[in-house]
Structures are given as structure tokens and as C-alpha cells.
């Protein structure tokens, strides 16, 4: 069974996706609102459920027509007005808080917080594909960037106390095919990626580490494995990562790797995948230029173990690991498969 196989292919350390553990301003604002809403609805719940249970206990009696009927009360206008006005007042207060939170979350942060002018923002376009994420790095501060990567979004940690050390992240969201939704609960609420539309969202966090999430709008067969992974790196580490990503793919002198590269370029891999600096220019599948810089493969479904074992299984039989995914098995010979795995494993 590939049930156990998949477990073996995965890192099992616990992942936190709770909306109650926010780490970025939009998620924090929503968290505050949610606490208020939970308190109000919790209060209403206790009162109404209490009256119901009290009435049931107090007024329950077995039916006996001979006992006659209880006094008939047809209604009361003052009471009706009271219990129309009270909820209306609650709704009004709630509406005011919602307006404030909506501005905090969906307002343009650069307009609302003038001090952000001093910050160094990262701008990335995220494009949803069936069932993986394409990231086009547009700019970092005043510096234009021009590279793509896939599935793992790297962003710098921000120092939210010092304006010049703030590193907000602005995402432009697009879709290449069907609707998707970008949802990393601890960073922000979700925003959809809709074909023919351009959406935006932002987040900023001082916590380093990996933030998890996944596509939240049903997008077809492998919706469940369209996983999100945002790596928040310390600033120096992020810039190192950036420097590496901007380079063309690593060219090895190793004869076996060069032979593998020939196989890769001769096969139909290149119809879908791109490796910068080579003739592989496919746009349908994830960019592989720095594949070994990623922690996972197959859109986050399996770990990248760096020994090439999971990569080999994936190339050999993608339909077992991610049934219904758009990558077919090509039936490569054992030596060709070796070569391709060896080549891809060299793409640091």
C-alpha cells in the first residue's frame, strides 16, 4: 500500500495552522475581531439556550386534556420592540468593529502606514496552477528581481519596531487555470486567485521559520495536495537565498551529471519544465532551476530527501504519489531515470 509509503516520504514534525496563533498584522487584526465576535455570540448562546432549558424543565407536563389549557398569551408589542431593538444594537456595534478591521486587513498598508515608505518591501506575483504555486519575484526594495520559483515562498523576516528594518510582503495573485485560494492562516486570511482577475494581499512577520497552509478553494482532483509553504528567513539568509535564485542553473563538470542533463533535455520533461540557462523553457510545470533549494517535491506532497530517492519515485510514478496530477509517468529506462535524477539533484 502506498499509504505507509507516503508516511515514509513525509516529515512528521507538527505543523501549526491555527487562526488563533497569528504572526502577522492581518491575521492579528482578524484574531482580535474573532475574539469579540466569539464573546458576543457565546453570551447570546448562554442566554437563549438557558431560557430554552429552563422552560423545558419548568413547564414540562404530560398531556392531559382534562387539566384544561394554560393561560393564552397572544403577544406583547413592548416586548417585541425590546427584543428587536436589543439585537439591532448589537448588530450596530459589531458593524462598527467590522468596518475598522476590514480597513486594517484590506486597506492599502502603504497608504495607512506612512512609515512603511522607509521599509524594504518584497513584491511577488503568485500564480495558481492545478496543483502547484508559481512565484515570480518582482522586486525587493528598489531592486528589480526577475526570476521564478515554485511551491516554496521565501520571504525575509521583518523588524516591526524599526521602520527601516521592516520587510512587508506584497503578493499579487493570479490564476493560470481555475480558482484557487492563498491561505496561510497564521499570516493572513485567504484571498482567491481567479482567472482573469488580479488580487492582492500582504503580510509581514518577525517570526522566522516555516508557515504552512494550503489552497482553500476547490480546484480539481488534487486540490488536497496543493500545499503552501512560506519560509520566513532571517534577512542575511534571505539575501543569500535571493543571490542563489537569481543565478542560472548550476552547471556541473561531472560527466554522469552532464549525461543526465542530455537525457533531461532530450526527453519531454522540457515541454513543461524550465531550467534557466538551458533549452528547457516549459511553462506548464514548476520551474526546476534550483530544485535542490526546496524542502519538498510534488507541490509539497513529499519531502525532498536530497538523496534523490523520493525524486526518483516521483519521476518514476507520479500518479501513485499524487493521483490525477498532470505529470505522467514516462517509462524512462533505469539508466535514463538515474541520469535525470542525478542531474536534477545537482540543481542547488
Amino acid at each position: 500500500m502506498h499509504h505507509s509509503l507516503l508516511l515514509a516520504l513525509n516529515d512528521v514534525s507538527p505543523q501549526n495552522l491555527s487562526i488563533f496563533d497569528p504572526a502577522s498584522p492581518p491575521a492579528e487584526a482578524i484574531h482580535q475581531l474573532s475574539m469579540l465576535v466569539l464573546a458576543i455570540t457565546g453570551g447570546i448562546f448562554l442566554v437563549v439556550e438557558g431560557i430554552l432549558i429552563y422552560s423545558l424543565v419548568r413547564f414540562r407536563s404530560p398531556h392531559n386534556p382534562r387539566n384544561g389549557e394554560p393561560p393564552q398569551v397572544y403577544g406583547s408589542q413592548p416586548i417585541e420592540i425590546a427584543w428587536t431593538a436589543a439585537p439591532a444594537l448589537i448588530v450596530f456595534v459589531l458593524a462598527l468593529v467590522i468596518v475598522r478591521t476590514e480597513w486594517e486587513v484590506r486597506g492599502d498598508p502603504e497608504k495607512l502606514q506612512p512609515e512603511l515608505k522607509e521599509s524594504k518591501p518584497l513584491r511577488v506575483t503568485a500564480i495558481g496552477h492545478q496543483w502547484w504555486w508559481e512565484y515570480v519575484y518582482e522586486s525587493f526594495g528598489d531592486e528589480k528581481l526577475d526570476f521564478l520559483t515554485a511551491n516554496e515562498l521565501h520571504v525575509p523576516a521583518s523588524n516591526r519596531q524599526v521602520p527601516s528594518e521592516r520587510r512587508p510582503v506584497y503578493l499579487t495573485l493570479k490564476s493560470a487555470d481555475v480558482n484557487h485560494s492563498f491561505w496561510v492562516p497564521r499570516l493572513a486570511g485567504k484571498t482567491d486567485l481567479i482567472p482573469g482577475r488580479t488580487n492582492t494581499m500582504w503580510f509581514e512577520t518577525s517570526q522566522t521559520g516555516i508557515f504552512f497552509g494550503q489552497c482553500a478553494e476547490y480546484c480539481g482532483t488534487q486540490h488536497a495536495n496543493m500545499l503552501l509553504r512560506v519560509s520566513v528567513d532571517p534577512p542575511e539568509q534571505f539575501e543569500k537565498w535571493l543571490d542563489n535564485e537569481r543565478k542560472n542553473a548550476f552547471e556541473s563538470d561531472d560527466a554522469a551529471i552532464r549525461k543526465g542533463k542530455q537525457v533531461f533535455l532530450a526527453q519531454s520533461c522540457v515541454n513543461c519544465h524550465r531550467v534557466s540557462g538551458t533549452s528547457a523553457r516549459g511553462k506548464v510545470g514548476p520551474d526546476l532551476t534550483h530544485l535542490m533549494g526546496r524542502a519538498t517535491l510534488a507541490g509539497g506532497t513529499i519531502d525532498n530527501d536530497r538523496k534523490g530517492e523520493n525524486l526518483r519515485r516521483w519521476i518514476e510514478d507520479p500518479q501513485t504519489i499524487k493521483p490525477g496530477c498532470l505529470m505522467p509517468a514516462f517509462g524512462l529506462s533505469a539508466s535514463d531515470l538515474d541520469g535525470v535524477v542525478r542531474y536534477l539533484s545537482s540543481l542547488e
Partner: peptide
């Protein structure tokens, strides 16, 4: 509560 829904929706 729209912003809360950004988290809860879907």
C-alpha cells in the same frame, strides 16, 4: 463578520 470570514471561508 467579513474579516473573520477571510479565515473561516471555505
Amino acid at each position: 463578520a467579513a474579516p473573520f470570514d477571510f479565515q473561516l471561508s471555505d
